[in-house]
Amino acid sequence: MKARLAITALVALLIFCAGYAALFIAPDEATMHAIQRIFYFHVASWNAMFCAFFVAFYASVAYLVTGKRKWDALGVSGVEVGVICCTIGLITGPLWARPVWGIWWTWDAKLTSTFILWLLFIAYLLLRGLVEDPEKKASLSAIFAIFASLDIPLVYLANRLWRTQHPQPVIAGGQGSGLDPVMSKVLLLCLFAIFCVMILVLVDRYRLELLRNEAAELKFEIESRGLDAAEGATTPALQKGGL
């Protein structure tokens, strides 16, 4: 418990430092000025989202291979945290785009792909809510998560072939790309900070799911024992009555 508190405090400190660095230490961007600073969190939340969805994909495959419930718990945690990161990215993106591009939203390859990604994993959460049987819920949602993950590269490829407007990758994106050294250090710090927040929330969500599973099992056991006890109580009485 103490260790967890310490880790949470550490991550809180880290995110504070990252926020400070992004707002005050990073140099002003030449054309976009202060608006550009949202980029440190926008990129970092995408990065965290991809990690979370990768965890979900891996856990879904592992669940189908091993059949262990803990993988299902990890899968749903990964999707939930990924959807949150995705939502943050989808909100910070338009906030930046409005002053820079002059529009809130455009049907560009990256934007559209992410929107579809968001819709797919919202559908995953809906599916889980609508299936009663826990075993079925686990295996069907794992199958859906795998299909959705396979779809993501296809969505991106299709949109890429179709049209694109998003800024090209600034890091390792070919000629003319590259960041100011201070900027890239701040970005790295932000990437790491948001990643740690994501992992922290993911681990807590995973624990919560395990506890929920345990609670559901215990409840089921109590109910079945309660029925046994009730039957045990009534049967002798019936026998007596019969005698």
């Binding site: 559209t112 579809i116 819709l119 797919l120 559908a123 809906l126 599916l127 609508l130 299936v131 009663e132 049987d133 079925k136 069907l140 199958i143 859906f144 299909f147 959705a148 779809d151 296809l154 969505v155 490829l157 299709a158 949109n159």
Partner: peptide
């Protein structure tokens, strides 16, 4: 086959299927 086990399956199938079919 997935949505057959769910409640509101008639509504769920398009929700699962249509985003996946965008490419």
């Amino acid at each position: 086959a997935v949505s057959a086990h769910a409640r509101m399956r008639e509504l769920l199938l398009p929700l699962l299927l249509l985003p996946l079919l965008t490419p």
